[in-house]
Each structure stands twice: as C-alpha cells, then as structure tokens.
Nucleic acid binder design. Structure first.
Lengths: 213, 213
DNA sequence: ACCTGAACACCGTTCAAGT
DNA sequence: ACCTGAACACCGTTCAAGT
C-alpha cells in the first residue's frame, strides 16, 4: 500500500515515520512491562498508554483494539519459533530417521524453552482472545517442514507421509504445550527431553518401510 | 458443613434448599444458552442473570464472581471425561501392550469428541481465566491411570514406568488438544484415530522389555 | 501528521432494602 | 432465607479539538 520512504532522521522535530516508530516501540515495551508487573488481568489500555507515555487515543491509532495489541506480541513470538524450526529443518535434510526424529524433537524443545525463558510475560495471553488462526498457521508450517524432512529421509519411505507428518506435528506441539500449562517443572522438562525424541523415533520406525534391508 | 435435609417438596412456597437448587440450575442453563448464542465475548453477568430470570445479586449469591461461574461449567466437563477414562482403564487392566495402547488412545478420543459434540459451547472458555490448576489435576489423574495400566500389562515391563506414563499422558492430551484448537476438521480427526493408537503402541514397545521372549 | 483526554456505553461487583 | 436492582468503580473505545 505505502511505498518505502527514505529513512531520514532529523535531530529535533523528528519526521512522522520515525516519530510513530518510536511510539510503537514504546507501546510494545510498555505492554510487556505491564504484563510483567501484574499479569493479564492488570493489563489495561489506559495503563499501557500511561506507561508508554502516550494518550489512549494515540494507542488506538496503531492498534484498533486491545486484542490487536496482544495479538502483535504473540505473533512476534510465534515467528521466532518458526524461524528457529526452519533453521533446524534445513540442517536435518537428508538425514536418517533417527537423526531427524531426535533433531526435530530437540529443536522444538529448545525453541519452546528459549521462548519461555525470554518472555514468560507473554504466556497466558492466549487467554484473552482467539488464537486458533495463529495456531492453525503454525501447525501447518510445522507439518509442512516435517513432511519435507521425512521425504528427504535417506533410510526409509513412509506409506502415508502426510498423515505421519500431521501426527508428528501434533505430538510435538501438543505434548510440550500440555506440560507447560499443567506442570512446568524442571523434572518434567527433563522427562520431555529424554522421552519425546524416543517417542517420535519409535513412531516413525513403526510406520515406515526400511529402504536398505 | 450442612447436614443432609429430607427432600421435602411443598407445592407452593417451595422450601429454601429446593428453591436455590432450581435457581442454580437456571443459572447454569442460562450460561450455556448465552454461550451458544454469542460466545464468550457475549457472556455477561447481567445477560446470564436476565436469561435465568433472576437478578444479578442472586447470581452473586451462588457464584462469587464471573470466573466461578465459568469454572463450574468447565469442571463439570472435566469430570465427565475423567469418569469415562476411569471406566476404560478398569476394562483394560491386565491386557497386553497393544490392547492397552489402542484402548487408551481410543477411549481418550471418544471422551474428547463426545465432550465436543455435547457442549461445543464450553470450548474457548479456557480463554477467560486460568485453567492451569484444573489441567494439572487432570494430567495427574491421567498419568496415574496410565501408570497403573502399564504396571498391569501382561506382556512387558517398563524400565522407567513413571516417565513413560507421563509422556504418554502428554502425548495423548496434547495432540488431541492441538488438533481441536488448530484445525478441528473431520479429516484430521480421522487421522488422529488412525495414527494416535499406533504412535502410542510404537512408543510403548520401544521403551519396554518383552516378558515372554 | 500526530497526539490529547473528556465523554460514552457498558461491564463486574456490592449492598441497603424488600419479601 | 432468598431475592432485588440502583449505585459504584472501572473498562474499552471514540472523536472533537489541539499542535
């Protein structure tokens, strides 16, 4: 819609584009801050605006409603995880079943846990509004990655690769989520790290016909 | 706290216990009704009270806040699923690994899908408030059931049964949940029915030492 | 172009008053 | 004992007015 504008930065009376960029960053930061202070129940448009040093009206120029504000935060987090998984996928291409299963499971756990440490504030946002769209997109991306990976496997072929990719994505995504929500203890994460790769591998082996023997 | 009172039913001017029971049922019903009409965003204390034919004040006599009202609904649903799983567990006791894996996975899918059809209204409530307590309890119950089941398996022993039970509960709970939230299509449920029992069985076999051979 | 903040409609919750 | 509903504090959102 809007053509790219040269990034001019004037010392005082900063031009429009830059001024609003600062405002947006301030709002974003304030939201996380408020979230860390008092959780989702404490998060109020007035409160965020106040903390960001702008008026409520200004906030509504950038985010048409509160949901949009939260959505932006969550989307950013999803993208981080997606990127991490994309990189892992590239590296695992052409490997054997064992390497792929362990690699994907470990990458997924790493991405999720980095995300958790980095921004505990954002968890629980899923609370306030409908994430199904975002989740659906994430699930599809993940399934596609896994599918490509399985197609590239050097030591096996799968009869119904689509279903297996789908199931593997659900197993990975779901199990980690459930543990994070139900009881995110050190002990349980250790168990996930040990068992999840094994489970993925076992499932793949069971549904594949070995190529070499 | 309150001793049991004989269930006297007077035609007019119904006695206290009974009157309030009616009120509670009306509120409960009205909540589901409102939820079905306009979803969670539409659910308002005023609206529920109106639909139930009572005043807001009355509602607050039974539920100290809106969350309590929703919590009661969700808890009821959880209990239904728990009961169903309990029955399935009893029947599967002493079976072999394959029977147990397929039985548990299928029972879980059945319970979840019956629940879904019966009260689509309740989904998405998780939205409004913290379910971690309830989920944690449910996860523990499920893990315990699976653990007992695995201990009873007639054809195998597991080295680290606790971890395996934990993982299996997470795999079951998580995968179904993710599919329900991300893309609850017929096709995907069919895939779950086909792949989930297999995945569970494969995992169990991979981590167990066969008893008879 | 960007920002302000009083004003509006509506929400969850309370409590003095009724029966 | 149980219910009522006006009243309160607060929320998300808007928009005429400023710079």
């Amino acid at each position: 819609m809007s053509r790219p504008t040269p990034a001019l930065l004037k010392p005082r009376k900063t031009p429009r584009q830059s001024r609003s960029a600062v405002t947006i960053e301030a709002i974003h930061h304030a939201t996380i801050q408020v979230l860390l202070t008092g959780g989702l129940g404490y998060l109020t448009t007035t409160r965020v605006a106040e903390r960001a040093g702008v008026s409520v009206g200004t906030m509504y120029q950038y985010y048409p409603h509160k949901q949009a504000l939260l959505f932006a935060l969550v989307e950013r987090q999803f993208n981080l995880i997606e990127t991490a998984m994309g990189e892992a996928t590239t590296q695992l291409m052409g490997g054997d079943l064992r390497t792929i299963a362990h690699g994907v499971a470990t990458a997924w756990l790493d991405a999720k846990m980095a995300d958790m440490v980095a921004s505990r504030a954002i968890y629980g946002i899923s609370a306030e509004f409908d994430l199904s769209e975002l989740m659906s997109r994430a699930a599809q991306t993940m399934t596609a990655s896994i599918d490509a990976l399985l197609a590239s496997a050097c030591d096996a072929q799968l009869a119904d690769r689509q279903s297996v990719s789908f199931m593997l994505a659900a197993l990975l995504g779901g199990s980690v989520r459930v543990v994070m929500e139900a009881d995110p203890s050190e002990e349980n994460f250790a168990r996930l790290r040990r068992e999840l790769p094994q489970a993925c591998h076992a499932y793949l082996v069971a549904t594949s016909q070995s190529v070499e023997r």
